[in-house]
Amino acid sequence: MTSLSIRGVAKAYGATPVLRGVDLEVPAKSITAILGPSGCGKTTLLRIIAGFTDPDGGVVKFGDQTVYGAGRSVPPQRRRVGYVPQEGALFPHLDVAANISFGLSRSRSRRAERIHELLSLVGLDAAMGARFPHELSGGQQQRVALARALAPSPAVVLLDEPFSSLDAGLREGTGRAVVHALRATGATALLVTHDQSEALSLSDQVAVMRQGRLAQTDRPLALYRSPVDVGVATFVGGAILLPATVRGLTARCALGDVAVAEGSAEGLGQVLVRPEQLEILPEGATGGVPARVAEVSFYGHDAAVHLDLLPHGPRVVARIVGMDAPPPATLVSVMARGRATVYATSPA
């Protein structure tokens, strides 16, 4: 299979820059998520890779084949990309089998077999082949759209917010089915999304996009653990940011002394603690700081406990196992476990 490489891709619509020099490497057979808020340019990047739009500059390579560069552009029909748009966009005048075989050459023998194979790959029944798009549910449409994209064995598969129109229950199941199918075919995939849990759970690598630039590209765990800046930190998950004084391997902040990594900036700064790093202990427990429970959001499997640190705040959120959540107004002791990440104090 093929890796995907993007260098210095820039694009503007009129005077408005949308992409300001994007560099990205997607290793072969891996799934990379591009995570960003709406309007950050991620769909434009996808359309450029697919060849629907040309950038103003930069290079796009599939393996060692340059598909865009130095003013030369390979048309989309010769790029061998699989494209799964938002809401599927199945051809309304064709049934499921015809949709899936759309990209297969007419002479291809084993056509029916291939359709069958793809349907089962995306977890659909073979009987679905005769249905029309309007007879399918949203999740089924999305699976058919993926089967259609995978049918010609594309070099690269591009998925543009494929699950955003599905409801939450369906989203997770469809997401996993899609990832299984992608892994089974060994495709190199790029998934665009604005949902951080989708990005973190489905991909091997996450690229956070902000105002036309990639702020950080990393493995999901590394990204979550060591975001490059406060913006990325708050975008990829819940974050507690506290002013701190760093000395050696310890930062002193409202949560007491918290461990930090070696080589962290000394002196005044800011520390990032994730809500699930907080542990709630009985009142007066050693090593903790006193706090009062202000509010509890109970989700079942877990709970968000809003705590007012005593005596003068601030308020922080702890994420703990649902059944362990104390009732509001309880006096407790809070302790941060694990390491915090240090940032130089920003003017804000």
């Binding site: 697919a50 989309p76 029909q77 966009a89 759309f102 010609p152």
Partner: peptide
């Protein structure tokens, strides 16, 4: 006939 359907067709190898 939304243009998106044509994009999809192009990506599936049709000129």
């Amino acid at each position: 006939a939304p243009p998106l359907l044509e994009d999809v067709s192009h990506s599936l190898g049709h000129g």
